[in-house]
């Protein structure tokens, strides 16, 4: 076993594109759940329409690249309105069920054989990211000694982390304002806010839309980085990973989702590397207990366990403040 190797794999993922996608998805969730108390279990759907908004407009409808980028922002906005109108007046668990259902419906539709001409079926779409790759100002990759990124990755990472920083800045500016105060109040008691003359529904809708669009930016980034969109990327697991990252970092904190996402991928990649080195041929764990295939599964078992334990024992995450955490985990 090579500790350095494990660390390298973990660090590469923690700073890499996956962490950016999930940081953006989790920032969106943070606005929904951390600040407003909306239980959106369909963030993967918002991420997906962001990615497909770009890909479909460019590939299927031949729109110019800038229009594709615009669509990546408009599509989640539309989704938020469609989902919000029926459910935001209802109890929190209804929103959860409808959003998770809608996200799955979207994934099924994007991947369906019947609509292959529009969405590319299970193979997805590609061939739209040219302008993004052409805009790459770097002439070579970067080697930091311990970890290194190629030329294309470096460009993606630059764009991605700048996007994350901008979103954090926006969330910070919004949440210190009276608007943010209304959201935090809704999180705690809608009726109190209503009794003071605030249109709770409108605020919830704004929060859902903003968080959805930021999630959609995550999808757009993933689409640009991968140069292809595939429906299987946007399963409910994506939502729950983003939730795990958010809870890990700390809901209701500006930097919570970012720290959470980086740490989440550090742990997932680190554990993956650790177990794949430990099991199978040459590993110290006998194959009776753990085979190669099992080694790739064990980190997800630990992930599930971690979500439970975090929620029960430290619902405020790493940097959250227990006194004002949205959900009372106690």
């Amino acid at each position: 076993m090579d500790i350095l190797d494990i660390l390298r794999a973990a660090l590469q993922q923690a700073l890499g594109p996956q962490a950016i996608v999930f940081a953006l998805a989790a920032i969106g969730l943070n606005i929904h759940f951390g600040y407003t108390g909306l239980l959106n279990f369909g963030q993967a759907g918002f991420v997906a329409v962001g990615a497909y908004g770009l890909a479909v407009s460019v590939v299927t409808f031949g729109a110019p690249f800038w229009l594709g980028i615009t669509m990546a922002i408009v599509a989640p906005l539309v989704l938020a309105v469609i989902l919000g109108v029926p459910t935001l007046r209802l109890r929190a668990d209804y929103l959860a069920i409808v959003t998770i259902a809608a996200a799955e419906v979207l994934r099924f539709v994007f991947g369906s054989v019947e609509m292959k001409d529009t969405f590319g079926g299970s193979n997805g779409l590609n061939g739209y990211a040219g302008p993004f790759q052409d805009a790459n100002p770097y002439s070579s990759g970067i080697d930091l000694g311990f970890i290194s990124f190629g030329r294309n990755d470096l460009w993606s990472l630059t764009v991605g982390w700048v996007l994350v920083a901008l979103c954090c800045l926006l969330v910070w500016a919004l949440m210190r304002s009276p608007w943010g105060r209304v959201l935090r109040s809704i999180r705690e008691d809608e009726d109190a806010v209503r009794s003071l003359g605030k249109n709770v529904f409108a605020y919830k809708m704004q929060a859902l839309a903003l968080g959805g669009v930021i999630g959609g930016l995550g999808g757009m980034f993933l689409a640009l980085k991968q140069a292809s969109v595939v429906p299987s990327d946007y399963s409910t697991l994506m939502t729950f990973y983003a939730f795990a990252a958010l809870l890990l970092g700390g809901a209701g904190r500006v930097m919570g989702p970012v720290i959470g996402s980086v740490l989440f991928w550090f742990l997932i990649a680190g554990l993956g590397s650790f177990f794949s080195q430990s099991a199978g041929k040459g590993g110290w764990i006998p194959t009776v207990i753990m085979t190669d295939t099992q080694a790739s599964v064990i980190r997800y078992i630990m992930l599930g366990l971690a979500i439970m334990l975090l929620m029960i024992f430290r619902p405020q995450g790493i940097i959250g403040d227990r006194r004002e955490i949205a959900i009372d985990g106690r």
């Binding site: 729950f240 078992i301 599930g304 979500i307 439970m308 334990l309 959900i327 009372d328 106690r330």
Partner: peptide, 25 residues
């Protein structure tokens, strides 16, 4: 201990992922 319903719902998601991969294991 008075855990809220929403917190429990998230715990149940953790449990679902935990069990699903345990089964797969």
């Amino acid at each position: 201990r008075g855990t809220g319903l929403i917190a429990m719902m998230i715990v149940s998601i953790g449990l679902a992922i935990f069990l699903r991969y345990l089964f797969q294991y």
